[in-house]
Design a protein around this nucleic acid. Sequence first.
DNA 1: CAGACCTCCGCTGTCGACAATCAACTCCTG
DNA 2: CAGGAGTTGATTGTCGACAGCGGAGGTCTG
Lengths: 222, 222
Amino acid sequence: MSLGSDDVTAPHGRLTRMPLREQAVGVLRDMVVSGVLGPGDRINEADLASQLGISRGPLREAIQRLGAEGFVEFRQNRGAFVRSLSPEDVRHMYEVRELIEVKAASLAAQNATEEGVEEMRRLIAATDEVLRTDTTGAYPTEYDLHALVLELSGNPQLQRIGTDLQVQVRLARVRSGRSPERAREALTEHLQIISAIADRDPRRAGREMRAHLRRALDTLTA
Amino acid sequence: MSLGSDDVTAPHGRLTRMPLREQAVGVLRDMVVSGVLGPGDRINEADLASQLGISRGPLREAIQRLGAEGFVEFRQNRGAFVRSLSPEDVRHMYEVRELIEVKAASLAAQNATEEGVEEMRRLIAATDEVLRTDTTGAYPTEYDLHALVLELSGNPQLQRIGTDLQVQVRLARVRSGRSPERAREALTEHLQIISAIADRDPRRAGREMRAHLRRALDTLTA
DNA sequence: CAGACCTCCGCTGTCGACAATCAACTCCTG
DNA sequence: CAGGAGTTGATTGTCGACAGCGGAGGTCTG
């Protein structure tokens, strides 16, 4: 697993090389949410660095970033550990997430551009599609929805904090996969949120988002 | 300005040496909020490192931390720059801050421990004192209040995000110092918040906090 | 045999040096 | 004299190496 040659195409087509640190941040996040790195696991810098084909320098910088985002915790002279969330932590995270995303949904309903709403409609279609076929492919659009709502809120701060929280929540969800029934429910709830935003109804958008998040938390803690 | 010998006394009295990175984070924050590092300024790693008496390694890690917290921005191969806030940015920050701190105030009114309320009362006294004498010493208690409210909310997530935002706001306030009149106003508003929390009245606590933040934003943008 | 002490190994925290990249300046050219 | 290519200096991105702390496991002692 080396990432030295992972180049990336910049907006204008020029080939640009992302700093190793940035790439490492991405890989680490993936390793955490995919369960390769479980809660409480110690992060061995030397091992991980050679695994990624980079040196410890950029890796340590990446770890700091993850630390500020709340993914890992530090112990004096013991290094970084993948954060393990207590049920209390999860509750607290959802409490904040509700604040953030309800506001975001409401703002999105007010501020979304036409093309934003258009993208929402595409999500409706995609969601519909998933609903009619299988539910295993649900997660991608799940995150897409929440990310899109945050973006359409038009408030970058809200977006930044919201996505951080959203990704952190995955930490809790890694182990406890949800049932197919709940997945279907969630998708229909998404539909409600989307249509409220598309209809430009802030109140309803906020209400639906709140309901959605509360049910999600219930499922998670059950 | 070297920080190699800046030891720190741990909770139980044992002398502990903070990692250079942590100390650097603190110093950098101070340099930003105190105006030594102005918005848009480039951060020269070599200079700053030798200025602090450390090497670039820990410093770079510290900068990453600050980056995740929104203090500095990165440009490809150009390094880190102190973030400069547009009026839009400030508005967005206050929008989120209102969400967070209003909730925090309301929660604090519900959840605060007895000793928490006790500390609030001490703040009332201190604030009263400042009100009666000069107003130049106002800032410390200003930040103390908001920090305390966040802490008493009992939600660590809320606290973390809230303090981040609060410190960032200082970025905007560095240049535009507020008038003594506004400072007095702010203090009386604080009194309202405090007493609402001490009375354990969540509604009023939230309402007063909201009013306070809105006026603060008005002053800032004026 | 249990518990305190000690030793050794692995790992983090830190450093200095090299390579890659960008910005500014110079110099050439029309 | 204006504009562009080449050059140079400064600064970031990256790496490998060393020192010191902490924990695992062995050893000594009561």
